[in-house]
């Protein structure tokens, strides 16, 4: 199992202002992306906590929200609550930060269960997972059509978002995998481009693979993203991509 990741902030934004996050632990078979909502403050650190928190959680993933999320919410608040803040920053802190989230676990075959190659995913919002098999899109999750993206996705809040409310926002999926499959995890702007390309009978994974298949993949990815933005094929937004080959 091998994972690669690339990312780029929104055009006109500095690296510090990038509010997506991606995390991968191929040994555990865990991968996550999160996308901090522009309108909320302190959203980048929240997205980072979510992605890292999913991957490094002690229990099985995707687990129950109550098993791993409250500790992250507490850590988010502790980072900021004692700071001297302007009235607007204080109001935003009170509201909390928000982010979309997608977590994927690939269960590796072990011992007696050699044939049980399963994956499990959980999504809140429009971060996407695409499973590609034999050069075809085998499984999209949770969004299946390019037109289904908007600017008000479901989000995980860093405050006052309980397990109960998250059960209403989440979507869960599971499936099987086999050697040679590729899992593409990406935040919304790139996912929308990906689905648009498929709807035009393209194979977007081939295009991305051509960009990523080199030593300087981050640089080439940045050039490619800027080119797509120029063509208005890709919405100007933070972009995060994790590719998992199994």
């Amino acid at each position: 199992m091998e994972a690669r990741s690339v990312w780029l902030p929104k055009r006109g934004h500095s690296l510090d202002e990038y509010e997506d996050a991606g995390a991968a632990d191929p040994a555990l078979g865990r991968f996550a992306i999160a996308d901090g909502a522009t309108e909320s403050s302190f959203a980048g650190p929240w997205a980072r906590l979510l992605a890292d928190g999913f991957v490094s959680a002690a229990g099985p993933q995707p687990g129950r929200w109550s098993d791993w999320l409250p500790a992250l919410q507490q850590r988010w608040l502790e980072q900021f609550r004692d700071k001297e803040l302007a009235w607007y920053a204080e109001a935003k802190l009170e509201d909390g930060a928000f982010a979309t989230f997608l977590g994927l676990t690939l269960c590796a075959p072990t011992g007696f269960f050699m044939e049980r190659r399963k994956w499990h995913a959980v999504a809140v919002g429009d971060g996407c997972l695409f499973q590609v098999r034999d050069n075809e899109l085998y499984r999209p999750f949770p969004i299946e059509r390019a037109e289904d993206f908007g600017n008000t996705p479901w989000l995980i809040g860093s405050r006052n978002d309980s397990s109960k409310s998250l059960r209403q926002k989440e979507l869960r999926a599971k499936g099987d995998w086999r050697t040679g499959d590729c899992f593409w995890l990406m935040t919304d702007a790139l996912a929308q481009w990906f689905l648009t390309d498929i709807e035009a009978c393209g194979t977007p994974w081939t295009k991305l693979e051509a960009v990523l298949g080199s030593d300087d993949s981050q640089e080439r990815f940045a050039d490619w993203v800027e080119d797509q933005r120029d063509r208005q094929a890709l919405k100007n937004d933070d972009v995060t991509l994790i590719v998992v080959n199994v």
Partner: peptide, 13 residues
Amino acid sequence: LDIGTRVSDKNLR
């Protein structure tokens, strides 16, 4: 007005 991802009311319950 679109200045990025909004935190819509549905997320504030």
